[in-house]
């Protein structure tokens, strides 16, 4: 195994609030290898977006280490990271293709912006060439470069978001629900484009989504997040065929058309992320399998043959060594 491109060790983001400490991200350890596509799934409010923001260093983690290629970037203050050399290596494609584009910028300038800020000294011709190249590989018609975001369709704006993220040739591309605002017919095109770019440009992906059907198609591995913690992480096939955590199972059975699966419906709301009891499993109370033990000791994330899960009563584990 080669060294991972990105390594997160015990990363936490805790916000002080009037009523206590809000544990948005709580002790997350993850790795992403070169060329790998990792899916990050979970319900809204589970901390996915906070994790993305910590990772792309838009905000500082409260504790924990973030390393890219073995080099620590977790301790660079967020306000300085924006101009830091390592910033080039991680780029983000944001969720809403409309809101994430500056309405006063022409498409050309939106795509050129990261290059002008981080690409070092560049002549005007070099910038123009790079923008056209980025537009070409994302199949954005060049005549759109002189337009404004409101003149583009949703799919075209999604391409702009990708084009400006790849113009610096990042090693890690963070995709935050890149297709959730698109129609299925457009979604297909964007997903296929992303699949192609990963191969041609050799990028790693962190693909954040709540659409498991999409994750299944574009990811090698999937991490499932619940209330600030990773509760299961395994190759995509394992997650879908033999989920170990009851929450993952519930998530899978909620996909429309998952008729062949036994239905698990989650009632109630997740526990509060404010001052959570460290000795109680985060899923306790909503979990159909919850027992006394779950309220006494929080289960740690334990790995068995590449399949990690945090549950005292793992499912589908018959064939594993004790």
């Amino acid at each position: 195994m080669t060294a991972p491109l990105l390594e997160l060790e015990n990363v936490a983001k805790i916000y002080p609030t009037g009523s206590g400490q809000l544990h948005a991200v709580d002790g997350v350890s993850l790795t992403i290898s070169r060329g790998e596509s990792l899916g990050l799934v979970g319900e809204s409010g589970c901390g996915k977006s906070t994790l993305v923001r910590v990772l792309s260093r838009l905000i500082d983690p409260t504790t924990g280490a973030i390393r890219i290629d073995g080099q620590s970037i977790g301790d660079i203050p967020a306000r300085r990271f924006g101009t830091h050399a390592e910033r080039k290596r991680i780029q983000v494609v944001f969720q809403d293709p409309t809101d994430s584009l500056n309405p006063q910028f022409r498409i050309f300038d939106s795509i050129a912006d990261p290059l002008r800020r981080l690409g070092g000294r560049k002549t005007r011709t070099e910038v123009t060439e790079a923008v056209h190249e980025a537009a070409r590989i994302t199949r954005l018609p060049p005549e759109l470069l002189s337009r404004y975001p409101h003149q583009l369709s949703g799919g075209q704006k999604a391409r702009v978001g990708i084009a400006r993220a790849i113009i610096l040739r990042p090693e890690l591309l963070i995709l935050d629900e890149p297709t959730s605002a698109l129609d299925v017919s457009v979604q297909v095109v964007i997903l296929q484009l992303l699949g192609e770019l990963r191969e041609t440009l050799g990028m790693s992906y962190l693909f954040v989504s709540h659409d498991l059907n999409v994750v299944k198609l574009v990811c090698d591995r999937v991490a499932v997040m619940y209330l600030g913690k990773i509760i299961e992480c395994a190759p995509v096939k394992d997650i879908f065929e033999r989920p170990a955590h009851p929450y993952t199972k519930a998530l899978l059975s909620a996909i429309p058309g998952a008729a062949e699966m036994e239905r698990v419906r989650l009632d109630g709301e997740p526990r509060s992320p404010i001052d959570p009891d460290p000795n109680v499993c985060r899923f306790y109370g909503r979990c159909p399998m919850g027992q006394e033990l779950c309220a006494q000791t929080a289960p740690p994330l334990i790995e068995h043959g590449g399949h990690a899960a945090a549950c005292h009563f793992r499912l589908n584990q018959k064939d594993l060594p004790a």
Binding site: S153, Q187, V188, N213, L217
Partner: peptide, 23 residues
């Protein structure tokens, strides 16, 4: 038919999906 071929459900690889031409 095309709408169904564009829906990710049930597909196992990206290449099984097909886009609907035009708009």
């Amino acid at each position: 038919g095309l709408l169904m071929q564009a829906t990710p459900h049930g597909a196992t690889t990206l290449s099984e999906l097909a886009a609907i031409p035009g708009s």
